[in-house]
Amino acid sequence: MNYFLRRILQLIGTLFVVSLITFAAFYIIPGDPARVILGPEATEAQVEALREELGLNRSMLQTFSDWLTGTLRGDLGESLIFRQPVTDLVAQKIPVTLTIAAMSIFMTIIAAFPLGIAAARKPGKFADQLISVIGHFFLAFPPIVLALVITLLLGLTFKLFIAGEYVSYTDSISGFIASLFFPSIAVAIPKIAVFQKFIRTSIIAERSKDYVRTAKSHGLSNMMVMIRHILPNSLVPIITVLSIVASEILGGVLVVEMVFNIPGISRLLIFGIENRDYPLTAGIVLYLAVMTVIVYFVADILHSLVDPRIRLK
């Protein structure tokens, strides 16, 4: 239990620094939200009055401590421009973003494992070379370019989907999933290339160990050795890489959402940045950081389940 306690404390420390960076960053951004709201016509006195009302004249430390105590109670404050609670605004958009991320992670896992295992079967032979060449090509495919290629090729040329169409999850769950299918693929493809390569390397490294030879000499089939011995033992590094991949996927979704014109969190984020709406932006950044930290945390827990030795370190 000591191990988990230590991990949770570390987690809280990280999140505190994360929110401090976010907040400090947005507090020193030049520009005046009050001026943005009132427009260039407003007089200096009006702007000053609104600044006072929005609490923009207080010191940064004061604002941060207020924001922090609010955040600890689950209240991220109110958006300066929308005049709505940030949590409400985020709650409308975040399901879309998280669905794309979850679908991409799922696609990455189900595609990368078979590919990695197939490539590792006979290193250097045809299947391995083929997967390696294609993998290298997609590994370095910028997500925006991939998203545009998918729109152009699959959407506009082969008419597999209607470019720019989005079905809200309040209308139809299946339509919602379907409309997010191609965006998720655009995010997932480069990550499949990274992940399968890593799985291949880990399996090859694990297979050269003595216990694998022993297992085979006991008469276990290759299949059984792979499922019972090699895969479980190579899971620790694989989970680590998967957690990094998952965090990159979340970043990739932010860009791809814009390419496919999906009303997810990224448009709200850009809006917040452009209009100096720092409670909104800080709230979104914190949300996404918490998501990433949770992913790492889950990976840590899985590690200690897969390999109990880790808890003792």
């Binding site: 960053a25 947005f26 951004i29 990159e248 970043g251 940045i273 950044v285 996404l288 990433t292 790492y296």
Partner: peptide, 14 residues
Amino acid sequence: AFPGILLALVFVAV
């Protein structure tokens, strides 16, 4: 802990 592009957005804004 941040997705890279997110933090880059923040820093570039600053």
